[in-house]
Amino acid sequence: MISINDLSFAYDDGRMAIEHVSLDFKPGEKAALVGPNGAGKTTLLLHLNGILRGQGSVVVGEQAVDDRTIKAIRARVGLVFQSPDDQLFSSSVFDDVAYGLVYQGEEKIVIREKVAQALEVVGMPDSQARSPYHLSLGEKKRVALATVLCMQPEVLALDEPTAGLDPRGRRGILNLLADLDQTLIVATHDLEMVREIFPRVIIMDAGRVVYDGETQAALADRALLEAHGLIG
């Protein structure tokens, strides 16, 4: 589904944020991306639909990410940012969820339908007229997910979807993720969630992939987890 080949990227200040990353994801696969703060998880996710373009290649399906394919790829890979305050920039929940659909050139009736459907899925069916500002963090995160789900992407890339949530909010998101059948690539610090939902885990540290394999084996390896700051 997605294949990343020898990808490296440096921000303006010249330091490498990710270095020589190569990964493959099969359709329907659920993979977690873990690692300490600053490991490069967010940077990597931003490459999946061409927000950032580093050296090396990213191929989605059979399309390489470049100027010509970018529109199609953004429709195929849905990206949810860590802070819903960055993801939700419109003045009503409806406008925010509809945003991507408007850019896809959908008909008005279709937009209404898809927005309602996506909000239903995330359990926020009655929130269309509300302002995203007035939602709780848990609700914001659900709506942020809906803004991408409504576009029916094949791949979902989520950045720390459970960070900052209370136990009930976290459980809600967990149940939601478990029910999705898209390809899931999720950056997180929540090892409990990884254990529960993701059969595959990728550990990053200082911009490099240091482990890529079965979750069970990784979580059983205390030395590995400690070496990369995943347990205290």
Partner: peptide, 22 residues
């Protein structure tokens, strides 16, 4: 910083420099 991230979030959902509204 935030405006840059918002811009990325807009791009991620297909924003292409044209302002559209329904």
């Amino acid at each position: 910083d935030r405006s840059q991230r918002i811009y990325q979030a807009m791009q991620a959902r297909g924003y292409d420099g044209e302002i559209r509204s329904e």
